[in-house]
């Protein structure tokens, strides 16, 4: 018995998820919010990998690899959109977008 207990990985994952959520809520910069989203994505991924440790079919590991690819696609598209928003409005604060009610 020389393995780390599963619950330790889950605690770290929970901490990263909560931190990412707080970053999304606090920060007013879109790039910062995107970093928080990445943190939450990786917290979920850590859980998948930790559960996949005791599975001889590696289902969590495969799912984690797919999540990685989807996360990168999301990141590249989001940064392209942020760039376009900056070109149009010269600012990337979240508070600048207000609905016209």
């Amino acid at each position: 018995m020389n393995e780390i207990p599963l619950i330790f990985f889950l605690w770290v994952g929970a901490f990263l998820f909560a931190t990412g959520l707080s970053i999304i809520l606090i920060k007013r910069n879109v790039i910062f919010v995107l970093m928080g989203v990445e943190l939450m994505l990786n917290a979920a991924n850590l859980n998948l990998i930790a559960f996949s440790r005791g599975d001889d079919q590696n289902q969590g590991l495969m799912m984690g690899l797919f999540v990685l690819v989807i996360g990168v696609c999301e990141m590249s598209i989001a940064l392209a959109i942020i760039l376009q928003v900056y070109r149009r409005f010269k600012k990337i604060d979240i508070d600048q977008f207000q609905s016209r009610n």
Binding site: I4, L46, A50, S52, R53, L61, L68
Partner: peptide
Amino acid sequence: FYVLAFADVM
């Protein structure tokens, strides 16, 4: 962490 969870590929 991934290394410690025996997922070297990841």
